[in-house]
Write a protein that binds this DNA or RNA. Structure first.
Lengths: 172, 172
DNA sequence: GCCACGTCTGCGAAATCCGCAATCCACGAC
DNA sequence: GTCGTGGATTGCGGATTTCGCAGACGTGGC
């Protein structure tokens, strides 16, 4: 045992706390392997993960805790909102004049907005919105988002059917 | 104790196995409350969840197992791919002539594609792509997606910065 | 009435989680 | 070279959680 990722251990382990230039922690191979295990099953026992990545149960537990504290990953239940009673979802493309980031922050503050990303292309921001019904969706897009000062225009894509939703990159 | 959601228990519990017309299971208030707990912390103990929703530990465990088996939810670690070494991500809007669903299936089959949704609006499909670098991204978009028969056109939005990623609707 | 079915509860055994002290190792100071 | 420091890992015992199962309960079909 202790066969999988052992080779790079001593060389890499310090990296797990080093910071790259944008402030996000640099991850070594062992932490990536741990994340991958938890992407397959977020409730997998620490001991099983340890056996897979070549670490003791306590060490895995410590690393997982740190990854959670640092915000590198979160362990959560994910659902298809359509299954769970949120009948209207949409992706909204936003064009901004002025400070894009402050608009993105404003969108982030809205509870109906699940996902915000700044992009290059014909939209400055893409935001995913989850609502209970059409009225709610209309309200969020027209009254709240378009009302933000600096929002030049928006385009909406109402979801018809979610086909895929994965969190298992790495497992290729 | 046993105070939170008790009132609707006997009336609703059978619904947890009933099917709505599109084949997705109908969820009662207790299951929703359980999901909500696990959206806050995917590793929360069953006993703690039980206390919060007014059910025994064993009952919670049974329900969670069923929700997982039915595919209503999954408990997984989620990360910002940019933090974890995938340096290029993009949302791709696709326009299709002919059968949209078969194109969506083809996209779903690609391992680089994390997210596929069929939409109403100026795109038929939105797909999120996670790649290691520019070459990889270019390859996926130009060689693989545009090559699919029936794809009329695509538009790409390369991610610059992920601002928000939540799974806590319901917690409003 | 009575059986079948699905769900919930209670409980004991096994496994897991948790905190802590000791150890190991790389690295810098002197 | 030696010593000290800090971070990571390990090994453990006790507390907690998970797991499987048998029994109880309520509802609907016959």
């Amino acid at each position: 045992m202790h066969s999988e990722v052992v080779a790079s251990r001593n060389a890499d382990q310090r990296d797990s706390s080093r910071e790259s230039r944008n402030g996000t922690p640099q991850l070594d191979a062992v932490s990536l392997a741990i994340i991958q295990q938890l992407q397959e099953d977020g409730r997998r026992p620490y001991a099983a993960i340890g056996k897979a990545v070549g670490l003791s149960e306590a060490a895995v537990r410590q690393r997982v805790q740190k990854l959670l504290d640092q915000g590198v990953m979160q362990i959560v239940a994910v659902t298809d909102p359509l299954t769970v009673g949120f009948r209207r979802q949409a992706m909204v493309g936003v064009n901004v004049e002025g400070d894009v980031e402050s608009i993105a922050d404003a969108l982030t503050a809205m509870s109906e907005v699940e996902y915000v990303v700044m992009t290059a292309g014909s939209f400055d921001i893409l935001a995913e919105i989850v609502c209970e019904d059409d009225d709610h969706l209309l309200d969020v897009i027209n009254k709240r988002i378009r009302a933000l000062p600096g929002v030049r225009s928006t385009e909406s894509f109402v979801y018809l059917k979610l086909k895929k939703q994965t969190y298992m990159w790495g497992t290729r």
